[in-house]
Design a protein around this nucleic acid. Structure first.
Lengths: 110, 110
DNA sequence: TACATCCATCGTATAAATACGATGAATGTG
DNA sequence: CACATTCATCGTATTTATACGATGGATGTA
């Protein structure tokens, strides 16, 4: 238990935070939801439910996970909720992921 | 259920495969394990167990998940098992992640 | 040979994730 | 106003993940 590392910030994101984002992306339905939102403007829960083989409540729950992970933003327009991808977060995520994955064992983390 | 997308390949990786890799990275202990292996050559299960607040069996189980996701490779040298990061896989992953995250809604997937 | 070290696996307990239907709130439409 | 649409939430059932101790196999060392 010496030289413990369990979760402290290294090279742009601690383990717990990184794992949380990856966890939000760790479900195929959520990947599909992100893709659908990315490809279709003004997209609500119903639109996604029409396209995925899942119940509306399940889709809503997946969306909640993505919102809580700050990957999606809600814009409650009119009667419906519209979801927008938080591009800033995804850019950061792409960078952190790149740093983490690409530079395997540079002095960055050590 | 028209225009269904549930998991078919789009822009460099289908949803199920992508989710599987993210799932392998969705645990803080596994992030720490990857970091430790990346930073220390000739690294075995015991070395990681010494550094994380987890039982040896738990660490071994996490390693198994990473190996099955093809993120780690096992090199059974001498008495011990040594784990090596599969850099090719991580490079691909970084690229797919970048494509997926960075190019939110280019014609790539649509 | 006897013993220690390293590691994978098994069995198990507990917690978390996933999915569904039912329900109700909020907002449009006839 | 009555009704439909959209969505979030609740309760629940089932599956999966996480963690541990115990055990045994394989390999070094005395």
């Amino acid at each position: 238990m010496v030289d413990q590392i369990d979760g402290r910030g290294l090279g742009g994101g601690n383990s717990v935070e990184m794992a949380a984002i990856f966890a939000a992306l760790s479900n195929p339905a959520r990947i599909d939801i992100l893709r659908h939102i990315a490809c279709h403007n003004d997209c609500g829960c119903k639109d996604i439910t029409d396209v995925l083989p899942l119940a509306q409540s399940t889709v809503s729950q997946h969306i909640k996970v993505l919102v809580e992970a700050n990957i999606l933003r809600t814009e409650a327009i009119h009667p419906r909720s519209r979801y927008v991808i938080n591009e800033d977060v995804l850019k950061d995520l792409a960078e952190v992921t790149n740093t983490f994955l690409g530079s395997c064992c540079k002095e960055t983390w050590c």
